[in-house]
Simulated scan of single mutants.
Amino acid sequence: MLRVLIADDQALVRGGFSMILEAQPDIEVVGEAADGAEAVRQTLALAPDVVLMDVRMPVMDGIAATSAICARTSARVLVLTTFDLDEYVYDALTAGASGFLLKDMRRDELVAAVRVVAGGDALLAPSVTRRLIADVVSRGRVAPEPTPLAGLTARETETLRQVARGLSNAEIAAAMFVTEHTVKTHVSSVLAKLGLRDRVQAVVAAYESGLVVPGETGGPAPS
C-alpha cells in the first residue's frame, strides 16, 4: 500500500486529491497538511512514501518544506503548481523534489504520478519540466559552480544529454542504438557518479554544467 500525504493550503484541493487517491486499491492518504511546517511534522510522524506539495503556503512555503523533508526522510516529494512555468518550482527541484504536477492534471495523471514516484523514479513532464529549467537557466539562475561531469564515460555523458532533452528511455535507446536495459544502466551510473537523487536532478545538473543549453532539442519529446 502506497502512503501519501497531501500538503496544500486549500481544503477543497486537499479533499479532491484525497478522494481521487483513496479510490485506488493500492493508495492510502495518511494525512493532510495546510502549510509547509505542518507537512514536515506530519511527514516525520507518519512516514508517507509520497508527499504532494503545494508551492505557495503560509508559515513555511513548499520549497522550504521540500528541502526539510528530503534532507530528513526518504519520502518522495511531488510539487503541485498552478502555473506550468512557476519559477519557484525550480527551487523545489533543486531542493530534492522528484518532479512536479500541474493542478489541472487529469485524475489518471495524478494516480500515475504517485505510483511512478513511489516506485523510485522521477516524474519528468517534458512539456513542463524541460521548459521550466531552460527558462530559469537562460535567466542566469544556475549554481555558482558547474556540476563536474569529467567522471562520466562518453556513453554516460550522451545518455545524460538525452535525458535532459526530455527523451524517454525507449527514445534514448533508439537514438543510441542500444537496449532500454543499457540506457537504464547508464542512467543509474550517472546518478551514482554525480551523487544525484533521480532523473530530475540529472536534468538540472545537465543544464547547470552547460552540457545542454536552453532551447536545444534532441528529438521528439515523450507524450
Rank of each mutant, 00 (worst) to 15 (best):
199 R>T: 12
145 E>H: 05
53 M>N: 03
203 V>D: 11
49 D>T: 13
87 E>Q: 15
109 E>Y: 05
140 G>C: 05
186 H>L: 11
128 V>L: 11
202 A>R: 12
203 V>W: 10
27 I>E: 02
4 V>E: 01
185 T>R: 13
223 S>T: 13
83 F>R: 12
205 A>N: 10
160 L>E: 08
31 G>Q: 04
7 A>P: 08
161 R>P: 09
152 L>A: 08
172 I>F: 00
190 V>W: 06
182 T>A: 14
174 A>N: 10
73 T>K: 09
186 H>E: 12
220 P>Y: 01
166 G>M: 04
127 S>W: 03
188 S>M: 06
52 L>C: 03
202 A>G: 14
205 A>K: 10
105 M>K: 11
186 H>G: 03
223 S>I: 11
65 A>D: 07
191 L>S: 12
148 P>D: 05
169 N>E: 02
11 A>F: 09
80 L>Q: 14
201 Q>M: 15
61 D>G: 07
177 F>Y: 04
194 L>Q: 11
128 V>Y: 12
106 R>M: 14
45 A>Y: 00
42 Q>K: 15
147 T>Y: 08
138 S>A: 14
135 D>N: 13
212 V>Y: 00
202 A>S: 13
67 S>Y: 02
217 T>I: 08
117 V>E: 02
17 F>Q: 06
93 L>I: 15
74 S>H: 14
164 A>V: 10
55 V>E: 04
221 A>D: 03
32 E>A: 09
88 Y>M: 14
219 G>Q: 04
167 L>V: 02
105 M>A: 14
121 D>E: 14
162 Q>K: 09
36 G>Q: 08
181 H>K: 11
127 S>I: 00
69 I>G: 06
141 R>F: 14
179 T>C: 03
58 P>M: 08
147 T>C: 09
206 A>Q: 09
68 A>P: 03
63 I>S: 10
117 V>Y: 05
32 E>Y: 05
182 T>H: 10
179 T>R: 05
129 T>R: 01
196 L>Q: 12
129 T>E: 08
113 A>Y: 10
97 A>P: 09
177 F>G: 00
31 G>R: 06
